[in-house]
Design a protein around this nucleic acid. Structure first.
Lengths: 154, 154
DNA sequence: GTGAGTGCAAATGCTTTGCAGACGT
DNA sequence: ACGTCTGCAAAGCATTTGCACTCAC
């Protein structure tokens, strides 16, 4: 739904989208958005802090969290837990994708959204539950670790 | 796979399985296992503490966590994060199932394992990634909240 | 000018750890 | 008896909150 947004421009529309939500446009908020845009895959709060502090040294972690909460509540950002006690954040707006988290080497692969659509459909059909396409991490073993495990237990 | 285990008896095989792993059989460990067996769905560490303290008052949260780590490392227990900063634990041995966590009312539904097998297969085929059947929570909207949302935004 | 937004510091909640004593083998 | 396990208390970590000040509107 709604495919009308400029493909590769990052800066100008954010200001507009914040204004549309009647929230103030502050340098901190724009910088958090830039940090998210720069790491389009996924990024943790303290990584945002490091990134942001490089260009706005006074910025504070509490502000990062408050900003992320705001951006989530207005639908600009999605939050994902990879099971390590740390939350990761990403901009909503790219193609939907999910994360495969390797429990052995902790690598994170990204999966196209449509790989999971048959699952979404059967869960919706059988349980009446609409799975959120943007808040999903699957745990398991990546190809490399799988090979390593098989060579040990043949 | 392997359907050979007594259906409703809980105590004797645990002792054996602990011994087989060369770890000591202590009342604390058995009580944690009993707590897990009693809540076969999923249970958080502090709920285990409450349950265990009722029959072994001296037991300590740190012990619960250490015991859970041990049980996970020997493959008796699985850990799941529902995205709330709290970990949930369950015995490995029941039929595989996953969890549907409603982001609105925080209800947790259980899904049969095979609903997700087409997804497992396509991910294995396309990414060489073997998803862990026992460490999975899907977030989204349950039937009731879905209905409530639709009536607000028709 | 005013209230939303921020920085600072302290608090929170879950989980982990160091150490001395206890208990399973 | 030995070495593992436990209880206790304190630390650790990501995240949240209270409060006074600041800045976007």
């Amino acid at each position: 739904m709604d495919a009308k947004q400029s493909p590769a421009s990052a800066e100008p529309s954010y200001v507009e989208r914040l204004r549309r939500q009647r929230v103030r446009v502050t340098p901190q908020r724009l910088i958090v958005l830039e940090a998210l845009a720069a790491h389009s895959g996924h990024i943790a709060a303290d990584e945002i802090l490091r990134w942001a502090a490089a260009r706005y040294p006074a910025i504070n972690l509490a502000t990062i969290y408050r900003t992320l909460d705001l951006l989530i509540s207005i639908g600009l950002v999605a939050q994902t837990d990879f099971g390590s006690g740390v939350s990761f954040f990403e901009l909503v707006g790219d193609a939907p994708h999910h994360h495969l988290v390797c429990e052995h080497c902790h690598a994170v692969l990204e999966v196209e959204g449509n790989v999971l659509s048959p699952m979404h459909e059967s869960i919706l059909r059988e349980y009446g539950f609409l799975t959120n396409t943007r808040h999903l991490a699957l745990f398991g073993s990546c190809r490399a670790c799988l090979a390593a495990l098989e060579s040990k237990v043949p």
